[in-house]
Design a protein around this nucleic acid. Structure first.
Lengths: 109, 109
DNA sequence: TCATTTTATTGTAATATTGCAATCAAATAA
DNA sequence: TTATTTGATTGCAATATTACAATAAAATGA
């Protein structure tokens, strides 16, 4: 089907899965890493950092934007992208919520 | 194409994207959350926790297993699944590596 | 105005993912 | 042995994702 069922899952589960999905491509990871590294807003030079054509990069940027992870500021002909700091912290908190459920001593296989 | 290009990305980027992909479905998040919550190995009762048919759950379990996140221990007719503790810590560290790159004060839009 | 630059969108093709019914495989129970 | 139980696999069908060429849209420059 290719269509993910959403009924029967909690908001929390759907939200976490959606974030993970936004991160589930090396190009999008690379974009985020680059934005974090330069620590500022940058325009389409991102294309030069990636082994992909401009339209493809544009699509990945759109997905990150739709997920709220990055935001773009139009400045004349060019756009400045950067990490949405507040959202980034939220995402971190959501992942940590998952990680922290882990208990060290388990009666496990 | 549907085929993710892998050349031109770092091992790190590919690894993170792969983990994110494994987490990019509410059913797989739900499975992980459940395994973390019960804090032990459980068998196919997981199916009862999810709004999906048994074969579908089995597929999701397989994806999590392929990603190394969970492991299954065969015990007679049934299988006991649980979180792979070492791998789980690794994943946490990898995500934190990404999150920690974030610097609070940015000259940003 | 017309060309240039920068980014987004559209069109198209190939592959991947998701879901379930049906079925199989293996271990135990009767 | 035969039935039952448990979980994996297979075989579709439908939708999603990825990628790039071509094109569009919008602002600036000549």
């Amino acid at each position: 089907m290719g269509l993910t069922k959403t009924t029967g899952f909690t908001e929390d589960q759907l939200a976490l899965a959606a974030i993970a999905k936004a991160l589930a491509h090396p190009a999008r990871i690379a974009i985020i890493q680059h934005l974090l590294k330069v620590n500022q807003c940058i325009g389409g030079q991102i294309v030069d950092e990636l082994p992909l054509a401009q339209p493809t990069v544009s699509r990945h940027l759109k997905e990150l934007k739709d997920a709220g992870i990055i935001k773009g500021d139009i400045e004349g002909v060019r756009i400045n992208y950067c990490i949405d700091a507040i959202r980034w912290r939220e995402i971190q908190a959501q992942f940590n919520g998952l990680f922290d459920t882990f208990v060290a001593d388990r009666d496990c296989c």
